[in-house]
C-alpha cells in the first residue's frame, strides 16, 4: 500500500540569473488529493514542480516532504529516498533517447519502489506504445504517452505531471484522465497536475493552486472557486455603487452600460438588492475566473 505524501514549501524562492521564478512561496499540499497547479506560461509552475521533485535546489527557503513511509519531513534535493518516492513527469522526458522503450520501462521498474509491472504492461497496450522502438523514433504523442505510463505505473506517493500529457491528442488525453482516476481510486496518492488547460481538467481536481509571476494567487478547494465570481451588468452608476465593497477583477463599458466582474459570495439579500436596482447578476466560470486572476492588468 502506497501511503500518500504531504508537501510543504516554506518561503521558497528560486531565481534564474537573479530573476525570481518562485518568490517566497508558502504552500501546503494535503496528502491523498488531486491538486491542480494552474498558471499562465512563465508563472513558475514548472520551476515549482522541478523543485518539489528535487531536480532543483531552492535559492532560499525549503521544500519539505513528509508522511507515508518517509515519516518526518525531509528535503528532496539530493535525497535518494525521497526522490524515489516522488515521480515528476515532464514533456521533455528526462530519459535517455537512443534506447528502446523497454529500457526506460526497466529503469523505472528498478528505481521505483512501488512500481506495478502489470499496470505498466496494461497501459503500454492501451496507449499502443511499441516496446522495441527507440524512444527518439516515437511520435510526440507516443513520447507523451510513455511518460504517462511511467508516471502512473510508478504509483509514487507523490506524482507530478507537468503538462506532460499536452503532446497527446484528445482521445489519448481522455484515456489518460480515465486511467488516472481509475488508478487513483485503487491506490490513493498525492497527485499534482500542472496545466493551463483549466476547463479540461478542473472536474478531476480537488484543490487548486494558482500561481502568477512566481507568487501564490490563491489555493482553494476547486468547488469553492466555482461560483465565487459574479458579473454585475447594468447602468454604470448603479453598477459602481453596488460593487464598491467588492474586489473588482475586471471592468468593461459599452456606452452607458457597465459590466464588472467581482470576487465574493453574493448572499440572497445582496442579490435581491441588485435585482431591485435593475442590475443583472451572472455567475463566472472557473476558466474565466482563472483568466481574471492571472490576466494582464489593464
Amino acid at each position: 500500500m502506497t501511503a500518500a505524501l504531504t508537501v510543504r514549501t516554506e518561503d521558497l524562492s528560486v531565481r534564474f540569473a537573479g530573476v525570481p521564478a518562485l518568490d517566497r512561496l508558502d504552500l501546503r499540499l494535503a496528502p491523498g488529493k488531486i491538486h491542480g497547479l494552474l498558471g499562465r506560461n512563465g508563472s513558475g509552475k514548472s520551476t515549482l514542480a522541478a523543485t518539489l521533485a528535487g531536480f532543483r535546489r531552492p535559492d532560499e527557503g525549503r521544500v519539505l516532504i513528509e508522511g507515508g513511509d518517509l515519516g518526518a519531513a525531509q528535503e528532496p534535493y539530493e535525497n535518494a529516498v525521497v526522490t524515489s518516492r516522488v515521480c515528476l513527469i515532464r514533456e521533455a522526458g528526462d530519459r535517455p533517447d537512443a534506447v528502446p522503450v523497454k529500457y526506460a520501462v526497466g529503469l523505472a521498474a528498478a528505481l521505483r519502489p512501488y512500481w506495478d509491472a502489470d499496470l505498466a504492461g496494461d497501459l503500454l497496450d492501451r496507449f499502443e506504445v511499441p516496446l522495441n522502438k527507440k524512444i527518439q523514433k516515437l511520435s510526440r504523442g507516443k513520447k507523451s504517452a510513455l511518460g504517462v505510463v511511467l508516471g502512473l505505473a510508478s504509483r509514487a506517493p507523490l506524482t507530478i505531471f507537468d503538462e506532460s500529457y499536452l503532446g497527446m491528442d484528445v482521445p489519448s488525453r481522455n484515456l489518460f484522465y480515465d486511467m488516472l482516476l481509475a488508478d487513483y481510486a485503487e491506490v490513493p496518492r498525492t497527485i499534482v497536475l500542472s496545466t493551463h488547460l483549466v476547463s479540461e481538467v478542473s472536474a478531476m481536481l480537488e484543490e487548486v493552486v494558482i500561481l502568477d509571476q512566481g507568487r501564490l494567487v490563491t489555493q482553494s478547494p476547486v468547488d469553492a472557486l466555482r461560483g465565487r465570481g459574479a458579473s454585475i451588468v447594468g447602468p454604470a452608476a448603479a453598477v459602481d455603487e453596488f460593487t464598491a465593497g467588492f474586489t473588482v477583477l475586471a471592468e468593461e463599458r459599452l456606452g452607458g452600460t457597465k459590466s464588472t466582474t467581482v470576487l465574493g459570495d453574493l448572499d440572497p439579500a445582496l442579490l435581491a438588492q441588485a435585482t431591485a436596482a435593475g442590475l443583472e447578476i451572472g455567475p463566472v466560470g472557473l476558466q474565466d475566473l482563472f483568466v481574471h486572476l492571472t490576466g494582464v492588468k489593464s
Binding site: K33, I34, N174, Y177, D178, L181, A182, Y184, A185, A203, M204, L205, E206, V222, D223
Partner: peptide, 11 residues
C-alpha cells in the same frame, strides 16, 4: 460515478 463522469472521487 467519478470514473463514469470523469470527476474527482471526493467531489
Amino acid at each position: 460515478y467519478a470514473a463514469f463522469y470523469r470527476i474527482n472521487p471526493a467531489t
